[in-house]
């Protein structure tokens, strides 16, 4: 026997909906989805429709300005959420156009495959029935991944925002420097499903830490040792402050002005600091060799 449908899924929203209102809206959604051809749907379809309802109601609730008040009947708030999902979809499409137009000087197969797959999201995304779903394959790993709490068009928006941030950062470097860096960092960077931002960001932070030119992406031997010394400072607060300052300097030198781009690089710098401190404390030889590769 199948498990019962979780009508209580909408209880996750801030206002706990009445069972009658949820049932009535789900019945209306089922009727609209089947276009009168069927009185019933499989349980999975009903769950997906319910998920779409919950997503849109939450989207309306999170939205800043809407003509529909937060205490309006469920159906009105749901359709306001659908309208919001469509608005966000249009915005995401503009961001995709930008991602297609402004690519980094060096790309790999994973990057290009994902860029080619992203338009299918806009072809298949169904804000009215399944707004919580992401109907396309997204393989390219970002340096700072999208939070698991996002779904549907919210996920796509955040993914594209991070994608554009990474692409803009990479466009600040000469192609030859990036190729040389990737070959040292990954080897076969073209065919591996690897992130292109991470090596450049880490190299830029190491350069900035030792006051080497950031665009060169290659700190000298002494400069590299200085960077490691700062990152592995006995007081973690000092190290944290040093990498934040380095991220800020790198952003200034590369003219990456947006607050999000700065935060993104700062988070990457912090991750690098944690990893290097752990590595050098533990004396991991392999990691030392790996770091040496970006000198």
């Amino acid at each position: 026997m199948s498990e019962p449908i979780e009508i209580a899924a909408l209880e996750g929203t801030e206002s706990c909906e009445s069972l009658d209102a949820v049932t009535a809206l789900l019945a209306e959604r089922i009727a609209r989805y089947t276009m009168g051809d069927s009185t019933s749907v499989p349980l999975d379809t009903a769950k997906r429709l319910l998920g779409g309802m919950a997503f849109c109601v939450q989207l309306h609730l999170n939205g800043a300005a809407s003509a529909v008040p937060k205490d309006a009947p469920l159906k009105e708030r749901f359709f306001a959420g659908v309208a919001e999902a469509r608005r966000l979809t249009r915005r995401a499409k503009l961001m995709l156009n930008e991602a297609q137009r402004w690519q980094p000087p060096v790309v790999n197969t994973g990057f290009l495959d994902t860029l080619a797959a992203l338009p299918s999201f806009f072809k298949w995304y169904n804000a009215e029935f399944f707004a919580q779903e992401i109907p396309c394959s997204i393989d390219y790993p970002l340096c700072q991944p999208v939070s698991d709490s996002f779904s549907g068009v919210e996920y796509m928006l955040d993914y594209l925002k991070r994608w554009l941030t990474e692409s803009a950062f990479l466009r600040a470097f000469p192609r030859e420097s990036l190729v040389e860096l990737y070959e040292q960092y990954y080897g076969d960077y073209e065919d591996l499903l690897v992130n292109l931002y991470l090596p450049a960001a880490e190299a830029a932070i190491l350069c900035a830490l030792s006051n080497a030119p950031v665009r060169a992406l290659r700190p000298g031997e002494g400069q590299h040792a200085e960077s490691i010394r700062l990152i592995c400072a006995p007081d973690e607060a000092d190290a944290r402050n040093a990498v934040f300052m380095a991220a800020k300097r790198a952003c200034e030198e590369l003219c990456s002005g947006s607050a999000f781009a700065r935060d993104y690089l700062e988070q990457t710098a912090l991750d690098l600091m944690v990893r290097l401190r752990a590595t050098y404390t533990a004396g991991d030889v392999r990691e030392r060799i790996h770091i040496a590769g970006i000198e």
Binding site: M1, S2, P4, I5, T23, L26, A27, E28, I30, A31, T39, S40, V41, P42, L43, D44, T45, A46
Partner: peptide, 17 residues
């Protein structure tokens, strides 16, 4: 039957048809 076959029917029923 709906539960056994894993289907949901919330609006009008198919019985009249």
């Amino acid at each position: 039957a709906l539960a056994d076959h894993g289907r949901v029917e919330l609006g009008r029923s198919v019985l009249p048809a």
